[in-house]
Simulated assay, not measured.
Amino acid sequence: MTKAFISYHHRNDQDYRSHVSWLANVHGAFDDCSVELDDIDDDLAPQTIRRIIRDDYLRDTQVTILLCGTETRFRKHIDWELKSSMIDGTVNKRSGILVIDLPTTSCNSWQTSLPGEKEAIYPDFTTGWFTVETKADFQTRYPDLPERIIDNLVKPDVALSVVPWSRIENQPANLKFLVDATARVAHSNQYDMSLPMRMRDHNP
């Protein structure tokens, strides 16, 4: 079973995280290796927290699942988790990244990049597919996505999908397909990691 780490805004989006964990733990969508609330002391030095996340939680995972709500893009810990997932290091290897867009964003778009994804997840949507290519277009389409994710959506050598919550809610088979397919492409992703790591939570 694919091992995955859930990255999310603990204060805002815990209910969504609990549902995804239920799909994993009860219905076998994936092996949940995430940080639980209060697992990490937030008073620790930032570099210590980053090391704990990278070496203790991401070490054996193959996929990072990002739950994207309205304030996700401002959270420093989420940015650290995303960048750590992109690094092909000696301790933790590069992971695939799957974005689940939460209902709070009111976004009705999706981005497909995985083999067989259109047929498996969107069998009812057979026409009207089009390609989004520029960073500005992605930012307009997904105003709540972290910039680090946007930077990698525009890269042709990164397979990174964005799926609406409605396509995985109470649908463990869909989630399992997406997580497994994301794991299979992880090794070939050449992530853009040029964005500096966020040092504080900031909502402009």
Rank of each mutant, 00 (worst) to 15 (best):
K93G: 04
Y8F: 15
V185G: 00
M197S: 11
D15S: 15
D41W: 12
N12K: 13
P204H: 09
A24C: 15
L178Q: 03
R51Q: 08
N152E: 05
D157I: 05
H9P: 01
L82S: 02
H27A: 14
Q47E: 10
T112L: 10
N25I: 06
Y191C: 01
K118R: 13
A186W: 00
A4W: 02
T72E: 03
H202E: 14
G28H: 07
D101L: 11
Y16D: 03
D180I: 06
T127V: 13
T127W: 10
C107N: 12
P172M: 15
G89T: 05
K176T: 07
Q62T: 04
V162I: 14
G28I: 10
D41V: 07
T70P: 03
L145R: 01
N12S: 15
D13A: 08
Y142E: 03
R59L: 07
A173N: 09
D180A: 14
V91F: 04
V132Y: 02
V91C: 04
P123E: 08
A136Y: 04
K93S: 08
A24W: 05
E119Q: 15
D55Q: 13
D39G: 08
D41C: 12
R51F: 00
L114V: 02
T112E: 09
M1H: 10
V99F: 11
F30W: 10
I78L: 09
W110C: 09
W165H: 14
T140N: 15
I53T: 01
H19M: 14
I87A: 00
D56M: 02
A29E: 03
T72K: 03
I149H: 00
P172I: 12
D39Q: 11
V158N: 00
V158W: 00
A120M: 15
W110F: 12
L23P: 02
N108G: 10
M86C: 06
W129H: 13
T140C: 09
W110M: 07
R11H: 15
T48W: 04
V35F: 01
M199E: 11
R59P: 02
P164W: 13
D180P: 04
T61L: 00
T140Q: 15
R11S: 13
Y142W: 08
F177H: 11
R200F: 14
H77F: 11
D144K: 06
I121G: 00
I97L: 11
E117K: 04
I87D: 00
E119H: 15
G28N: 09
